[in-house]
């Protein structure tokens, strides 16, 4: 794992002969975090792999133009989130599925997924999260699982802190309701 700070990695990337090396270090540093973030949105491992690859390709292409007025890691999360949501949209339009049907398919995937190690409560939690609207799902995942600060989340989702807090509150209420009804 890279011990370089984001600033050092960006400086390294600016040196033409070290671009590949620096990018490789960025991939190694952030691949796991981004993978888990994407996985909780798209659920299936193979889909996550595709989205993660697309995310890093976009990062490679856009890193030259990255302005350091935002943090590297929030920028990476923003790209990963957008790629994940775009992927979901494509899947729904590709198979002409209503939103609820696609979410139901993902719930079924959770039942048979070889790479799901959680217990029954965690499985039910994932199903409850799948019932949330996409953006609310992202907010809940970032706060609950990744314990991301609202300020950083605000940069990732380009939404005000107040709106994010309200969104998280609504998400928690809906999940509580799901568990009460279940």
């Amino acid at each position: 794992m890279s011990d370089y700070s984001d600033k050092e990695l960006l400086d390294l990337f600016k040196e033409t002969e070290k671009r590949n090396y620096a990018f490789n270090l960025i991939v190694r540093k952030y691949q796991e975090k981004l993978y888990w973030h994407i996985r909780k949105i798209v659920i299936r491992h193979d889909d996550t792999d595709d989205v993660l690859q697309n995310t890093f390709i976009k990062v490679w292409k856009g890193l030259d133009r990255f302005r350091e007025d935002s943090k590297l890691y929030t920028w990476l999360y923003r790209i990963a989130t957008n790629e994940s949501l775009t992927f979901l949209k494509q899947q729904k339009t590709k198979y002409l599925l209503p939103i609820a049907d696609y979410e139901n398919q993902l719930k079924e995937t959770l039942e048979s997924d070889l790479y799901f190690n959680g217990d029954e409560i965690q499985r039910n939690l994932q199903k409850a999260i799948l019932d949330l609207p996409e953006k609310q799902r992202v907010v809940f995942n970032l706060k609950y699982f990744e314990e991301m600060k609202y300020d950083d989340m605000s940069e990732v989702l380009n939404t005000s802190v107040g709106a994010l807090k309200a969104s998280y509150h609504h998400a928690v209420k809906k999940i509580e309701k799901y568990f009460k009804e279940d």
């Binding site: 993978y35 888990w36 909780k40 959680g118 994932q126």
Partner: peptide
């Protein structure tokens, strides 16, 4: 806790894939 997992060696081979 994260309830998901990945195939063995996935993160080792991913940078090469990219």
């Amino acid at each position: 806790k994260n309830p998901f997992s990945v195939p063995e060696g996935y993160f080792d081979s991913f940078p090469q894939k990219i």
